[in-house]
Simulated assay, not measured.
Amino acid sequence: MPVPVQRDPEQTRRALADWLTARRRPRAGEVRVGPVRVPGAAGFSGEILLCDAEWTEGDGGTVRREPLAVRVAPTGHRVHPDDRWTEQVRLLEILNGTDVPVAPLLGHEPGSSVLGAPFLVMRRIEGEVPADFPSYHREGWLAGLPPQSRRAAWLGGIEMLAAIHRLDPLALGLGFLDRPRYGIGHLTQQLAEFTELLPYYGADDNETATTALTWLHDHQPEEPGPPRLLWGDARLGNIVYAGETPTAVLDWEMAALGRPEADLAWFLHLDRHLSEGIGAVRLAGLPDRAETVRHYERITGHVVQHLEYYEVFAAFRFCVLTARVTRLLEESGIMPPGTDFPLHRNATRLLGRVLEETGVRHGNTAARR
């Protein structure tokens, strides 16, 4: 669901060419930039521009080419109230020095004079990305693979998750991801932030969401051990594949510190949303919840705890975020106010189902209030 941006392609192309020539390759001569396009699978939380750059190097006139992805900081269409753009750039700079495969960061512009907002330029990683719209369970690259290859792609995604969670946030200096103004403890911080911002997201009148938030506060588990880096938006749709092998992980705007179960639960829930949540049959060959957890525990040595709690948290967060997307669609005029938007309706219904399951498992009625 791409961000509705009206941008002059030719003006954007020239601006990027001038910026690359002046700032990124000052001794390589003029940088030429090809047509600028928006990927069809772009998300709603940020503007992505794709283009190819080329320049001539050396006395021999060697022509170099580079496929680029330009991520522009959100301005008018913000899913989150604070895009934490500077932190995203800093995190990508740090991750470029680790064994977690991310797109190489080639440079960033902190000002708004070039494209109207800060932006960063990355080398584009070519490959296949499982789509959200339409769901990869219904059609597309992943659906076209044999079941055994789908299984390998899924487990490869879990291995990417494990690689992120093996990083040492303290050694990497990732303390800037902490949110101390919301309290002590990373889960405490996230719950407090959502409690404060529920009206901003447009979910304060959603009874299912408010019931879930109350349950999350009432049943909050302890967070033993040091926090890990959380990808935040951990899902198949943010992984680039070459065949069945992951080659890069994308989209760090929801990165945080906390328990790895939060990422694992999000990974599971987003897949559930794109299958059961929208009435699609889950692809044959994809490991189920139990096998996924066993694989994660085997490759990390971490015993997964309180996963049901974090699955409620994942379902709640997704419901809240889809409420915000609905509001943005209405504000942009793409959708009339009061429209029954399927994305949010499905997310709310699935959250209700998760709450009912949790209530049954624990024999408590709080989840069904």
Rank of each mutant, 00 (worst) to 15 (best):
L230V: 04
D205C: 11
P224M: 11
T195M: 12
T208R: 12
E193P: 02
D204A: 14
L230P: 01
G232K: 02
P221K: 04
D218M: 14
P199K: 09
P224T: 05
P199C: 06
P226W: 02
H217C: 12
Q220P: 01
L229D: 00
D218Q: 14
W215A: 14
E222Y: 05
P199H: 08
G232C: 06
H217F: 13
L213W: 06
Q220C: 11
T210W: 07
L229K: 01
L197K: 13
P226Y: 01
P226I: 02
H217K: 14
T208S: 10
D205V: 13
R228N: 02
A203D: 03
P226V: 03
H219Y: 11
A209W: 06
G225A: 07
T210M: 13
L229N: 00
T210V: 10
F194R: 09
D218L: 14
T211Q: 14
L216K: 12
T214S: 15
A192P: 02
W231N: 00
D204K: 09
E193R: 15
P224L: 11
E223M: 11
E222L: 13
G232T: 01
L197Y: 12
L229Y: 00
L229G: 00
L197P: 01
Q220K: 13
T211K: 14
H217I: 08
W215P: 02
E223T: 02
E193A: 13
W215D: 04
L216E: 01
P227A: 04
Y200I: 04
Y200L: 09
L216A: 07
T195S: 15
Y200G: 03
L229E: 00
L230T: 01
E207G: 10
T208P: 04
E193G: 06
L213Q: 04
T211E: 08
G202Q: 06
P227N: 03
D218R: 15
W231K: 01
E196V: 10
Y201P: 01
H219W: 14
A203P: 01
P221W: 04
W215T: 05
D218F: 09
E193V: 08
L198E: 04
L230C: 06
D218E: 15
T195E: 14
H219P: 04
D205R: 15
D205N: 13
Y200R: 06
E207P: 05
G202V: 04
E196M: 13
L213K: 10
H219K: 12
H217V: 11
P221M: 07
T214F: 13
F194N: 07
T211I: 12
Y201D: 03
P224G: 08
F194K: 10
L216S: 06
L229F: 01
E222F: 08
P224K: 06
P221E: 09
T208I: 11
P226A: 15
H217A: 15
T211W: 10
E196I: 08
A209D: 02
P224R: 05
L229V: 00
D205P: 02
W231R: 00
H217P: 02
G225M: 07
P199M: 09
Q220N: 05
L213F: 10
H217L: 14
T208A: 13
E193K: 15
D218S: 15
F194Y: 15
A203V: 02
A209P: 03
Q220F: 06
R228T: 02
E207R: 14
Q220R: 14
